[in-house]
Design a binder for these strands. Structure first.
Lengths: 350, 350
DNA sequence: CGTGCTAGAAAATACGCATTATCGTCTCGG
DNA sequence: CCGAGACGATAATGCGTATTTTCTAGCACG
């Protein structure tokens, strides 16, 4: 017995003190009336007095076992939630989640116990405890698809933060496609015609959405072209050469770290950002150093994401899951930070 | 029934699939051997195979009810944990807590449900759920004394972050007295003799410790003097006058926001910081703007605090609370940021 | 006086798991 | 052939709560 009685009160003890049965205590506590249950005011008061004179609180584990909700929302992060490098990513999410949870009167259970392996956590481990929560929010840049499938199969109530293309997965995501398309259109308006896209090797939905937004917007302009390059050091060298030859005037970079690297390479080659080449950052800019340049970029509404996801989870829990699919798949508009790295295109020397 | 069976697997179902009893499944899962329990390898394998072919995970609520610790550490914050203004205060603490909880294989339950009243939360509210956690960490600048007394009375395992002068309260705090004394001695070494202390109206232990450290260190120098002023706008005006008259060369400020205000007032009066007057900040500097001046100040080791508190709580839980008092009251050294606002004292014009 | 009804409250049960006691069965020694 | 272990596995129990079911008086009515 890891955890002995400790001063903890039980309904049975309350019952003895009040001279009633445990069942009566439970009925009083839960205000059950009607349906064959009657409790005269006198008895009710007696029980309530005893309860108030003690420090009784219902054991949540027992409540859950008995099939009632606990007002506990799980939060599963695929990476540690609080380390410095992620602080700007997770903290705004958690802020939104916390404020909404407070409104709902729910507690948050953060699953820090899931060990990190292969760089990220897995939900289904021998002793996972997601079952303690009424439902769960899933945060993380990359969420294991198998986990999602399994959660759906188990009919466990959860909401993913970020769009997920798995049947039956409720999510609150960001309209990256639309926002990226907007950025691309701004570039087009500013005269850019030759685009370069530094992509990353990831098939995550967010990356794909951004790519598709870019491709479709550039495709709308018949005279514009879009080249792809994997974001790697070699590609940077080549890209700088291409830029130097005035064949590309704007570069969309998926990885923020790479953007800075590229900008430096450009400048090392004697060119200027954004005069000679504009740069737009697409991926999570949370990790940018504060002293880094003011990139033109996406600004996902993270707190709002957390808030909306929490609300959706609560809806799932209270509605008994009969929500129509479209209400469980939410995309939020993504604001754009215009920044200082997207300028008018200079005349091509061709 | 808020939460019906859902696709969830139980040991009973596993048992049926494997052709054994529920008890056997449990025994296999928990690796119980000896003490009258024997399970041949053949059976064990059969059960394990079934388990692995399904998505079974033990129901944590049931486990806990059955007397197994659930490895959940509660985190009670007296203010919302994630809002921007507190981010630098709580986040490092949470970082330390999280990393340690991960090592321990524990989850974190954040009590966001406790409604905020009178500006801060209370632990004991009807339906508080701290009972779900094995133990609890208490964070907050000001912790309600009554809550502490009651927790001790209940024999509930917890650790406060920050020194608390309440009998039986385990804590991990910061040696503010020592660090403040060090700062004062540095000021003395640099020739300062006339000290001014902007204090705040708070009897919290941390504020008191800093005051005592300052008083005792200044008291050691027989030729030094220390004046007290409540930190208020009027006091600022007066203090500037005093400084202008060269009667004070160094000001210790409890409230960081006030420090900046004071510095500006000094400069507005045509004096210079730190040439004419040195400033030392004592209180929580977490809220300082990044572009604020580089104050000489205290730098509490917050992540370490979180880490050590988590370790202590774990010790309390696993030791059955038989720890000697001195092991449950820990003070960590507080590093000092020398900053740029404590200079050599200029010769007094007296 | 027995029957039916009602109010009030206790008893019983289920939840899923861990653990203990118990029950067969088999083997070996005497 | 019988008793004592040894071995395997199951039945039984408890954890604290919610809920359903059952029980006990007391009472009115026929």
């Amino acid at each position: 017995m890891t955890r002995p009685a400790r001063g903890r009160m039980t309904q049975k003890q309350i019952a003895e003190l009040a001279g009633v049965s445990q069942a009566t205590v439970s009925l009083v506590l839960n205000g059950r009336e009607g349906n064959g249950v009657r409790i005269p005011e006198e008895t009710r008061q007696r029980v309530l007095e005893v309860i108030n004179s003690t420090i009784y609180v219902a054991d949540p584990a027992a409540r859950r076992l008995a099939g009632v909700g606990n007002k506990i929302l799980g939060v599963f992060t695929y990476e540690p939630a609080f380390p410095n490098e992620s602080v700007d990513f997770y903290t705004p999410l958690l802020m939104g989640i916390e404020s909404e949870a407070e409104k709902l009167g729910s507690d948050l259970l953060i699953f820090t116990s899931a060990a990190v392996e292969d760089g990220h956590r897995h939900i289904f481990q021998p002793n996972n405890r997601i079952g303690l929560a009424d439902g769960c929010l899933l945060l993380g840049r990359e969420i294991d698809r198998e986990d999602l499938v399994r959660l759906v199969a188990e009919d466990y109530p959860f909401v993913a933060i970020g769009r997920r293309e798995v049947d039956g997965v409720p999510y609150v995501g960001v309209d990256y496609a639309g926002a990226t398309a907007s950025l691309a259109r701004i570039a087009l308006e500013r005269g850019h015609r030759r685009f370069l896209y530094f992509h990353v090797d990831s098939d995550s939905e967010s990356v794909r959405d951004r790519r598709e937004g870019l491709v479709s917007a550039v495709g709308e302009a018949t005279d514009a072209s879009l080249e792809f390059r994997v974001g790697s050091p070699e590609a940077i060298e080549e890209a700088v050469a291409v830029v130097a030859a005035r064949r590309v005037t704007v570069v969309f970079v998926e990885d923020p770290a790479l953007a800075e690297e590229f900008a430096r390479a450009v400048e090392a080659a004697g060119l200027s950002v954004p005069r000679d080449v504009s740069i737009v950052v697409l991926g999570d800019t949370a990790r940018l150093d504060p002293d880094q340049r003011d990139f033109t970029r996406l600004q996902p509404p993270r707190s709002e994401l957390g808030r909306r996801a929490t609300i959706l989870l609560d809806e799932l829990l209270s509605s008994g899951k009969e929500l129509p699919g479209e209400r469980t798949r939410i995309l939020l508009d993504c604001p754009i930070a215009l920044g200082a790295t997207l300028a008018e295109a200079t005349e091509s020397a061709e």
